[in-house]
């Protein structure tokens, strides 16, 4: 796995797609942290003391991880961060589905309020596969845009 060798254009494509998705997802959340906090609250997984700090911090984490991927800087760290965040999203969505909670995913802040469902899990698994591929890619750290 450590020696995974991706063609340059595939790696670039993955970085642009995943990085772009994360930046796009973060913008609305950064400008509307209250709406994002409400989305997080609906999952009922985050305690009261952490709800707002989490709603303030997570969008910036998404933004800088996405920006790092696009810029080709700190690719390994950004890939790990993206993978962990996507795993967290998968856990949260799975938990909501398991508890049969009918809520909007909040994935893109106030924009694109998709109801949670298997298609969202599928999308997140694709993101996870892409970020893991970048994480274990041998050439990633030398590639720049």
């Amino acid at each position: 796995m450590r020696n995974l060798k991706l063609p340059d254009y595939i790696e670039l494509l993955l970085r642009l797609m995943i990085g772009g998705t994360f930046i796009y997802a973060s913008i609305s959340k950064i400008f509307h942290p209250d709406a994002f906090a409400l989305s997080i609250f609906h999952y009922r997984l985050v305690p009261a003391a952490l709800l707002h700090p989490f709603a303030i911090y997570l969008p910036y984490l998404e933004f800088f991880a996405g920006a790092a991927l696009i810029a080709g800087k700190y690719i390994k760290g950004a890939s790990l961060l993206v993978s962990l965040m996507v795993l967290m999203f998968i856990g949260a969505i799975s938990s909501a589905l398991f508890r049969d909670i009918d809520i909007s995913c909040g994935c893109f802040g106030t924009e694109g309020g998709h109801a949670i469902g298997l298609q969202l899990l599928f999308r997140d698994f694709i993101l996870l596969a892409g970020s893991i591929a970048l994480l274990f890619s041998k050439i990633s750290s030398r590639q720049r845009l």
Binding site: I56, Y57, P59, Y60, L61, F63, F64, A65, A68, Y74, I75, K76, G77, A78, L80, L81
Partner: peptide
């Protein structure tokens, strides 16, 4: 190190 830098930048800016 990369992970730490990204976490800290995000924390600082937020």
């Amino acid at each position: 190190r990369e992970l730490g830098i990204l976490l800290l930048i995000s924390l600082g800016v937020s």
